[in-house]
């Protein structure tokens, strides 16, 4: 098991202490196609669960990324400014989007684990 948590909007969360690394899943990046730009939030922004966290653009579409849990943005992946393709190439590692300081760690339990997410994907 990866220890990642997943949302139905195809975001993942990797917990590192009080902070969660948020990105989009491999399934999501494949659906979006070649990513050309990632509009990241400013550091310090507070987001509610389900609030807009970032916007990922492919050539012909712009897709909002919603915060899977509430929190405060403590870091963004600055490397995506130069290399948005990282989200396609390595969504779970180099292509992460933001780090959130969790407002309510209990919210994590509302998300799916890997097995549940894999099952969810099969229903799509």
């Amino acid at each position: 098991m990866s220890g990642l948590k997943y949302s139905k909007d195809h975001e993942y969360l990797r917990i590192e202490g009080e902070v969660a690394v948020v990105g989009i899943t491999d399934y999501a990046q494949a659906q979006l196609g070649d990513i050309v730009f990632v509009d990241l939030p400013t550091i310090g922004k507070k987001v509610t669960k389900g609030g807009e966290l970032a916007v990922i653009e492919s050539v012909k579409a712009a897709s909002e990324v919603y915060a899977p849990v509430a929190g405060e943005v403590v870091e963004v992946n600055a490397e995506l400014g130069e290399k948005p393709a990282l989200v396609n190439e390595a969504p779970l590692s180099g292509g992460w989007l933001v780090k959130l300081r969790l407002e309510n760690p209990a919210e994590i339990e509302t998300l799916m684990d890997e097995a549940a997410y894999d099952g969810f994907l099969k229903t799509l």
Partner: peptide, 12 residues
């Protein structure tokens, strides 16, 4: 950079 434009971004 068409994602700025109305035919893709619509109300945004």
């Amino acid at each position: 950079l068409s994602t700025r434009e109305q035919h893709i971004r619509r109300d945004k």
